[in-house]
Nucleic acid binder design. Structure first.
Lengths: 335, 335
DNA sequence: ACTATCTTTGCACACGGGTGCAAGTCTCAT
DNA sequence: ATGAGACTTGCACCCGTGTGCAAAGATAGT
């Protein structure tokens, strides 16, 4: 083996010595647009390969004040949609030269500490996704202030210190509400997620107010404490057992809730979807397309949104359109 | 706002100046077991809070040769089991002071490049999980040699440069094989994942050879190109359509394949589980417990395995037992 | 051959903190 | 009061690379 991993890694100085140039020439060889002659670069690269040299990104970050690191804060692992987002985010960011620090935030109280850690790693940005984060803490928490860019992904925010990249939830839910009405449903039950005080989705509010506006009818809802199919199963089952009048459609804040709800209908009450009770979700997770769910849902343009994130990181984003992405209704059998 | 994020971050020197001590005293205040008087520490912490100071982990990594960073390489996002592993790994590692760099490796050819990036960030270890990684590349790839510790998680390896933390797959599959026999099944079909040449699971081999040993019977199998329920659905459907004799149980390399297979049985052939064909999986993903699957499966002790990873990182691990974890058979309705 | 111009290379200084040791300070028994 | 021993603090040097500028080298036109 030519390189002994026990010995110290080769540095640019080592390569420089071997080639007979200065250290700076070596580092330039590794920069795409650096001013260096093709000949020097070739010699450097050859020597680098021989020594197993690769530039130290830590030292580079320290010196340059850019880490090419993005922190991703997630607290919601029961929701399969997160896996999709993680996949696309890590893949696309990596394609543009950013690495991803994945931080599992245990709960809202833990988020400030997670942000602090991220800031100590000098991340170029921290992306909060599905995190239950208190808007006030976004102001006061030390970590929040230390992070260069604070980005809420797939979630709205009124906090001016924050950049929000998301769908126009109101427009999306309006589309969905109208669809529900057009299909002739008259007794919707909204299945909502955690009722946080801030940084939350406007889906329930939009659906309820839009429905009320068109149908002049108050709507009941169920609140599930987390975006977890099992909790949704429980909550929906409990609700249907206690409440007298049966809804004809469950409008769910996302697919995780929708799938749990649908399971409850089927296995607790032996009800069929959509014949007995229809179900509609949000996110279009992979499981939504499987034959047992065939879930009608709304798909967010995640890849586009991640590309917008890249623009934000590069500083070339159009800040006006960042929270106005529009997705599409995916009609399947469930509603 | 007391801290302007646009201005430079406070450094230990700034805090030192404010308190009237040396920089080293400031840094000591942030180390749990450093030699510093409680009084100094209190003064330092107060000043630090005032200035919004927190130690720079990049600079610390550079100077100390420990990054407290672990790279996690994953290429298999269609498998919901990955989400469980990611969740536990990030949570437990964070509890012990390690951060996680999540790298989405596109395919086997991409893994060396991902490892190289990780090594450039000076990760303390790179954890390969479910990655289709060529064993030869584990020898030759630059990134593989530059990484301090190379760990295969939930996967065996014969490569001596590699540390493998996993179940005793043979023992697990033997348990499972015997269970299948005891339940009276006589025509198993094995549903296998990608047939890579190395670093793969020994589940198929173990099941087939064990079955053959006991029942003196050759076994058919299906190979699915990825651990993706949809691909499993297709492969199983195709197989059952073409092959004449119908198996009485599908033994699947993991739950992702098992769920896809079960869907195929139900929706392509209108067969019921386990009455018409039983199904058995591996991993015990959350979905396996839902009423529509009720999947009999084998649960690996992920938390224990992650704790072993922590021991490896700390250098206190018992290397002998690292690939001999044992999980448990979870019997549900599907087989 | 000589100068104007462009390209390539080298360098001082900076980034923020860790390590091990030596000097300084304090405590307490004598 | 004094000295041994324990606890605190300060310091020189190092980790590996980026930045902007100045010097050196190459190129082309006359």
């Amino acid at each position: 083996m030519s390189i002994d991993p026990k010995t110290a890694m080769a540095t640019a100085d080592d390569v420089a010595k071997l080639v007979g140039v200065s250290r700076w020439t070596v580092n330039r060889a590794f920069k795409p647009n650096a001013s260096i002659s093709p000949k020097s670069r070739a010699k450097v690269m050859a020597a680098a390969e021989e020594l197993g040299y690769a530039p130290d990104l830590l030292a580079a970050s320290l010196a340059s004040d850019r880490s090419n690191l993005v922190a991703l804060l997630i607290d919601d692992f029961a929701n399969p949609h997160k896996l999709q987002i993680i996949e696309q985010l890590t893949r696309i960011l990596r394609g543009h030269g950013w690495d991803t620090l994945l931080v599992n935030t245990l709960n809202a109280a833990d988020a400030p500490s997670a942000l602090l850690t991220a800031s100590q790693r000098r991340v170029d940005a921290a992306v909060l996704i599905g995190v239950q984060f208190n808007d006030q803490e976004l102001e006061s928490a030390l970590g929040a202030r230390r992070v260069r860019k604070l980005i809420l992904f797939a979630r709205q925010s009124e906090n001016p210190n924050t950049i929000s990249i998301c769908c126009d939830d109101q427009a999306a839910m309006t589309t969905l509400t109208d669809y529900v009405g057009e299909q002739g449903y008259t007794r919707p039950l909204f299945v909502a997620g955690p009722q946080t005080t801030s940084a939350h989705l406007l889906r329930k509010e939009t659906f309820v107010s839009r429905w009320q506006q068109v149908h002049a009818q108050q709507l009941p809802f169920v609140a599930v404490p987390a975006y977890d199919p099992q909790l949704s199963y429980q909550a929906v089952a409990d609700h249907l057992r206690t409440d007298g009048e049966r809804p004809d459609i469950l409008v769910c804040e996302n697919d995780a809730l929708a799938m749990g709800a649908m399971d409850a209908l089927r296995f607790e009450f032996n009800l069929r979807t959509p014949d007995d009770i229809a179900v509609i979700g949000f996110d279009d997770v992979p499981q939504a397309a499987t034959p047992q769910y065939q879930l009608t849902t709304y798909r967010q343009p995640i890849a586009e949104m991640v590309n917008a994130l890249v623009d934000v990181l590069k500083g070339t984003a159009d800040m006006e359109t960042l929270n106005q992405f529009s997705g599409q209704l995916v009609v399947r059998a469930s509603a």
